[in-house]
Design a protein around this nucleic acid. Sequence first.
DNA 1: GTCTATATGCAGATAGAC
DNA 2: GTCTATCTGCATATAGAC
Lengths: 233, 233
Amino acid sequence: MSADARRAELLQAALRVMSREGVAAGTTRAIVAEAGMPLATFHYCFRSRNELLRELITLVTTMERDAAAAAMAETDGETGGPGRDTGPDGDPAPERAGAPAHDHFRETLRQGLRGYIGLLTENPGHELFLFELNHYALRTPELRDLAIEQYRRYYDTATQLLVTAAEVGGMRWTVDLPVLARLVVTLTDGATTTWLADRDTAATLAALDLAADHVAGLATPRQPVSSGYPDGT
Amino acid sequence: MSADARRAELLQAALRVMSREGVAAGTTRAIVAEAGMPLATFHYCFRSRNELLRELITLVTTMERDAAAAAMAETDGETGGPGRDTGPDGDPAPERAGAPAHDHFRETLRQGLRGYIGLLTENPGHELFLFELNHYALRTPELRDLAIEQYRRYYDTATQLLVTAAEVGGMRWTVDLPVLARLVVTLTDGATTTWLADRDTAATLAALDLAADHVAGLATPRQPVSSGYPDGT
DNA sequence: GTCTATATGCAGATAGAC
DNA sequence: GTCTATCTGCATATAGAC
């Protein structure tokens, strides 16, 4: 087996064991045991444990970005079609019914956030691991740059999701996009830390639905309905 | 020196060293060194390191609650007075000027969140420590109950802050209070994790201001302005 | 009671046999 | 190249001298 292949194996093993038992439990011994390799192999492939952690942060942030891209591609396909976002629960009766386009847009944002919470509840250890990893990196001078980079990618991902959501929904954001992207990351981060503590999915979704309604209100139809073009006025 | 006094000293020492260098660096040796005590003293006062961590979680969550209560008392005193929340920055010209009471209420909420960010920027290690502690507790079966309790107290604190803010501002919340309290905790938690990573205070405040405007819009004057009492109609 | 000295175990990292 | 065996240091916890 090539050295590169074993590096990848060790990274996957580290990801598994640290998601399952925490970053602190991801010792070099635990990682090689998970990968079924002898201990000495570790230091063939990585100069140190921190070097593996550097690669691991890069790996997981890339994975997150790809997952978001995949989710986006899926959302694209649902436009105009029968869709699959007709959940049994939800709040089908909004207190003040706005334009249909706006309602649909709001629902899209809700579903996006709900989709993320679905990932979280499916694999809580993974999201907890991402926080542990980030916080460890923040405390470790030689890893600090990657902790910052990790969040820069989160903002990029949120920005792309927002842009795509607006395009697909025929909307235009009325607030500064970087600020909005940061708000979205703030909301998902906060929803994650709170859910991880009490595992109250219903409460988490209720709070996020409220936030999604707010965010939806920060967009306006790209082609305003009543103050428009030649035919209108 | 009494045993209780030394327990308290050790807890304070643990708080200092773990805020400064992280939970993982808060070994029994580091704690007693910080407190200027011999190592063996530790196990006079605590059965184990995890027992100290149990007490520590209780201590810090109580401190947070007290800090919030103090902040609330301060806000009470500012009502109608000259106040001190006339910052040099801020956004004095809202795009759509609502009722004066509503504008003032919105400003109160903004200032509340800005106050929290002030605490965060003054002592970043402390807030990072709170996350590390919670996540360690989540990974440790014998501490898990306290991780849950920690967030229960956060919700209680947020609820009381919201109730007080509404009372002082003469407003009434139009949404479910537990949901709103959870949203506030979500926002502060998310603002904290993002700020800790990139230390971008301006971006954090911009995102929170946006959120504060939203939350302010979820309250209505307790005594509606135009459908009122004897003198009105 | 108080602290020195130590028991026991596991961490990251390597030396050296094959 | 590959893996066994080991080096070195620090962790929690405790025994036992004073």
